[in-house]
């Protein structure tokens, strides 16, 4: 393996200036208003998420946690290679439905975001968006080595290395790629966490929102996103 060139420094402004569509500009909306647009700003997350307290009654919270654990709805968003091992879970061989695990096509109805492997910067933006659209309490599972420490793409210029810098992760499943059995074992562990009331990633995200946002912004330059494009 070649050693890295220590002298490598980015000098982007002079050599490679910003593309035209990424520069701040004025745009006329369909109804005639003139608005300022800065594609490098994240318009979607101006308002921080709220911290949601647990239920006051421990018994109620316990019951809720039981229900949450036994009705895990996973967002059908295959961010990377691992998605291919999620498909067997929905099908006869492994049939995760019998454990109360189902797939939903929309983030609004999902509780669990499985980051199935590496996340390119472009997908990270969509994954963050999807995560923020999911209702509380929500969980994130990092599937595969790439989510832990970059995995195979440790030196890639386009994938993140540490998922927990950008999203609050409840659980990791190691392997490249993890088999459906391992994924299922991970989901069972997640259930236990939820029942114990320890899967409070969403609140962690809300409490440390500034930190997460800063990390996200250090990686994602272009926050311009079409509506409803997750």
């Amino acid at each position: 393996m070649k050693d890295i060139d220590k002298s490598f420094k980015k000098d982007t402004e002079t050599d490679f200036p910003l593309r035209e569509e990424m520069r701040p500009r004025k745009v006329t909306t369909p109804d005639g208003q003139v608005i300022d647009i800065d594609p490098l700003q994240d318009y979607f997350c101006q308002e921080p998420p709220k911290v949601h307290r647990k239920s006051y009654s421990a018994i109620v919270e316990g019951f809720y946690n039981w229900a949450r654990a036994n009705s895990l709805w996973i967002l059908g968003f295959g961010t990377g290679c691992g998605a291919i091992e999620m498909r067997p879970l929905m099908t006869p061989r492994f049939d995760a439905y019998r454990y109360g695990i189902q797939w939903r096509p929309t983030p609004r109805q999902s509780n669990l975001l499985v980051i199935s492997g590496y996340l390119s910067v472009k997908t990270l933006k969509r994954a963050i968006r999807a995560y923020e659209q999911m209702p509380q309490p929500k969980y994130v599972v990092g599937l595969g080595s790439c989510t832990i420490n970059g995995g195979m793409y440790w030196d890639s210029y386009n994938t993140i290395k540490k998922l927990d810098e950008y999203l609050p992760v409840d659980l990791y499943i190691a392997g490249c790629m993890p088999r459906p059995e391992a994924l299922l074992a991970g989901l069972m562990d997640l259930k236990k966490l939820i029942r114990k009331g320890e899967a409070e990633g969403a609140n962690r995200y809300a409490e440390n929102f500034d930190w997460y946002k800063a990390n996200q912004k250090s990686v994602i330059k272009d926050w311009d996103m079409p509506d409803y494009s997750w």
Partner: peptide, 19 residues
């Protein structure tokens, strides 16, 4: 496209033939 871009062709250039 580009959601799955890992820059393989670049990564291959800095790995030995077996890597």
């Amino acid at each position: 496209v580009g959601y799955l871009h890992r820059g393989f062709e670049k990564l291959m250039e800095r790995r030995t033939f077996i890597q």
